[in-house]
């Protein structure tokens, strides 16, 4: 336990810029854009004391029916989800390059000789790197997105006050930040399960590439896909290429993106209508589809095998 904590802390210390500062910068940019948008609205939009259709703005929310309030809350939730999605996009690149460097950089600077001079097995080392990619970095990104989500709601509340609205009834009542935070937190273990093939593949490339692990990690799957497409043209392997791009290529190169298993069932992504469903049910339906999908478990087995291969390659590397 102590060893695991030490290994995870070491990964964090080396990658603080990606794990912590990247999400904070993205969150700060989101907040800044929100502030600019609201400042513009304060200059050009409705003013406090404005009367719309005979109703003062300050009483507007009190007159909304339940379904309209739900829409208002859903809209705010979608904004919170958007903030989270923005951080996830940044996190994708952080995790991709973290994994590609995880077993490559230590060989390039020869520090692998230092790490291997200590009583830590290759399996523990590699697993700690996998865990950093699927748990540590995503949990930090989640915490940062939740923190900036609260900042966003506070900023909205100030704007509501300026309009003469009560922030409790206009913002905090209709929106459901806690369920957004809970759902996005629940995405972390689900994504970890789904993304094992990508984690294993990237670690393996990182462990064996003598130069440029990125080219191996992306180039090999692209070449295989092009070869299959060519065979498809020759009608030797008719539907293979399409299946390959969807189930192998995307899985190996993008599966750390939360919810990307939804791309695989033909629905094409989150189909969320703030008026009709809650974000929570939409995402959790996706989770149900995930654990009942055989592709999840086939991928998990392949991913575990790739991680095991990365461990073996690291064991053999001597410099």
């Amino acid at each position: 336990m102590k060893t695991l904590a030490t290994l995870l802390r070491r990964e964090y210390q080396e990658n603080r810029a990606g794990f912590l500062w990247t999400p904070i910068v993205v969150g700060a940019v989101f907040t800044l854009l929100t502030l600019i948008g609201l400042a513009t609205a304060m200059v050009k939009g409705p003013k406090a004391g404005l009367v719309i259709d005979g109703v003062p703005v300050s009483e507007l929310v009190d007159r909304l029916g339940p379904s309209e309030l739900a829409k208002l809350g859903g809209g705010i939730d979608v904004a919170l989800g958007g903030l989270w999605a923005l951080l996830q996009a940044a996190l994708y690149f952080v995790v991709l390059f973290y994994l590609l460097g995880a077993l490559f950089d230590e060989r390039r600077d020869r520090s692998v000789l230092f790490w291997k001079s200590l009583p830590v097995s290759d399996a523990k080392t590699v697993l700690s790197k996998a865990a950093s990619a699927v748990f540590v970095a995503p949990l930090i990104a989640w915490a940062v997105s939740a923190a900036f989500g609260l900042v966003f709601l506070v900023v909205l509340s100030v704007y509501a006050l300026w309009l003469g609205l009560n922030p409790v009834t206009a913002i905090w009542g209709p929106a459901s930040p806690l369920s957004v935070f809970a759902v996005t937190l629940a995405m972390v273990p689900l994504t970890a399960l789904w993304s094992l093939p990508m984690v294993g593949w990237m670690l393996l490339c990182s462990a064996f590439a003598r130069q440029r692990p990125f080219l191996w990690a992306i180039g090999v799957p692209v070449l295989v896909g092009l070869m299959l497409a060519w065979l498809g043209v020759l009608r030797v392997f008719r539907d293979g290429a399409e299946f390959y791009w969807q189930h192998v290529f995307l899985r190996l190169t993008t599966s750390v993106v939360p919810g990307n298993w939804l791309w695989f069932d033909g629905s094409g992504g989150l189909d969320f209508d703030p008026g009709t469903g809650s974000l929570a049910t939409t995402l959790l339906d996706g989770a149900g589809a995930l654990v009942t999908n055989p592709a999840t478990w086939i991928g998990a087995v392949v991913g575990a095998a790739l991680v095991a291969a990365a461990i073996e390659v690291r064991r053999r590397v001597s410099e």
Partner: peptide
Amino acid sequence: VLPRWIRVREAIDYVEGVH
């Protein structure tokens, strides 16, 4: 062979944690 990014304190923490 000591990793160039690590701080002296962090290196000591690490060895203490695993050894």
